[in-house]
Design a binder for these strands. Structure first.
Length: 424
RNA sequence: GUGGGCGUAGCUCAGCUGGUAGAGCUCCGGAUUGUGGUUCCGGUGGUCGUGGGUUCAAGCCCCAUCGCUCACCCCA
């Protein structure tokens, strides 16, 4: 590779035709489930004022300073490519009055951008599908959201994801717990690794997430958030678990499941897999009752989640739906080509579901049949000199032992409908 | 930002102690003048990521640099 060759931006991937069928399959499946819960699509800009993200995640300086795609436009405004969907959704909801004494169940889908070092399942442009419910404070909507995600995996045929849930309580309860935790880890300061000593000052809850094996016994002994929950949060969490139990959804309460940002409260959940290396979270969600107010709206309870499509693609890679054409049309000579085009358009008019690939570029029968085979088509239609002269078409089966046959061109639509598309 | 692994044909990769660049797949053509998939034969395709150095000689050794990848950090 010459260094002058123009390449894609690091961490931004081309999704090639071999991959798009699985993307389409995931998108349509998830969309269908979202509609079955009566969630409504919202489409939002990819670009927002940097200030919007500063307000929501501003307390974590690393994210704002290093991990967003931000720039100054010609007017001198600071803009950022959206690193996630919630901030823009909340902004739009406030701006358009969607939250004013209203309940909203919304979903979105699209690319997000994070300026991080790429690794497996983690890219600079990645794609999320998310859903958010506004205006509901109770555990019932938490359960609805989680049940909906469980249905996604059933519909997609993913059965080895684990649901982990936890409650972070209220901000006040968490602040109190945070003090307990800091005291505990400070007492064992010498056992903390360098990263965790830093976290002690920046985000002590994150120490619980440490991957360092040497830290695990210390973490086991740490005070647990669930034991320091305020009473209403305990009730809320208990009811959520009851609703999940009733629905037959399995889960594991993971007391160490925390969030990097402060605006989360009460319910948090993740669907995780062991199959994707270090990036095992396929879907993550939680309640953020203070976020709307934080961005400048009236206090509005909210819960939402987002899932990474790339990770679903990695998990579902083996089972690609078949998008091969049904029919490959072979023609020889100018007359054949002309009749072929007319015939092809007639077929597409008559059978909208038909995937018909018309040979282009000329060539002899042999090479055209080779391409017909490679295309994956079930049937080759042949229009050579003989057929043209008789207004016929030859039907040859490429995948099964059946003698080829010749039909009048005018009978072809009937023949195909009869044998392959009886329902259309 | 930090650390490991890897850059050789469109793809997957081999290349010994430094001695003229290889295979499989793909693609094109032929065996078969209107019939694919199996088989056989032939062909196209390379600045060995890039730049420098050592050497009679570098894909291989040394330095630098770019890229990919996995992990750490972070995780909205």
């Amino acid at each position: 590779m010459s260094s002058q060759k123009i390449q894609a931006i690091r961490g931004m991937n081309d999704i090639l035709p071999t991959q798009t069928p699985i993307w389409q399959h995931i998108e349509t499946t998830i969309r269908q489930v979202l509609h079955s819960y009566a969630y409504q699509e919202i489409r939002l800009p990819l670009l927002e004022a940097t200030e919007l993200f500063n307000r929501t995640i501003g307390e974590v300086t690393d994210i704002v300073e290093k991990e967003m795609f931000s720039f100054t436009d010609r007017n001198g405004d600071r803009l950022s490519l959206r690193p996630e969907g919630t901030a823009g959704c909340v902004r739009a909801g406030i701006e358009q009055g969607l939250f004013y004494n209203q309940i909203q169940r919304l979903w979105y889908m699209g690319p997000m951008f994070r300026h991080e070092r790429p690794q497996k399942g983690r890219y600079r442009q990645f794609h999320q599908i998310g859903a958010e419910a506004y205006g509901l404070a109770g555990p019932d909507i938490d359960a609805e959201i989680i049940l909906m995600t469980a249905r996604f995996w059933r519909q997609l045929g993913l059965n080895d994801l684990e649901l982990q849930i936890n409650s972070l309580g209220t901000a006040a309860a968490r602040a109190a717990y945070r003090e307990h935790l800091v005291n505990y880890f400070s007492d064992h300061h010498k056992q903390l690794d360098a990263d965790s000593q830093r976290r002690l000052h920046t985000n002590p809850l994150r120490i619980l997430d440490s991957k360092n094996p040497d830290m695990q016994t210390l973490i086991e002994g740490a005070p647990q958030l669930l034991e320091h929950l305020d009473e209403p949060s305990q009730t809320h969490f208990a009811m959520l678990k009851q609703l999940l139990d009733q629905a037959g959804v399995n889960y594991r309460v993971n007391p160490r499941l925390v969030r990097g940002l402060d605006y989360y409260n009460r319910t948090v959940f993740e669907w995780v897999t062991q199959k994707l290396g270090a990036q095992g979270t396929v879907c993550a969600g939680g309640r953020y009752d203070t976020l709307v107010e934080q961005i400048g709206g009236r206090a509005t309870p909210a819960i939402g989640f987002a899932m990474g499509i790339e990770r679903l693609v990695l998990l579902l890679d083996a089972e690609m739906p078949n998008n091969a054409p049904h029919i490959y049309l072979i023609t020889v000579g100018d007359e054949g080509m002309q009749q072929g085009f007319r015939l092809a358009e007639t077929l597409r008019d008559a059978i909208p579901k038909l995937r018909l690939l018309t040979h282009c570029g000329g060539g002899r029968f042999k090479s055209q049949f080779k391409r017909a085979d490679k295309s994956g088509a079930k049937i080759a239609l042949v229009l050579g000199e003989d057929e043209v002269a008789k207004q016929q078409v030859t039907v040859k089966y490429l995948r099964e032992k059946q003698p080829q046959l010749s039909l009048a061109q005018s009978d072809l639509v009937h023949y195909l409908k009869e044998n392959f598309f009886s329902d259309s």
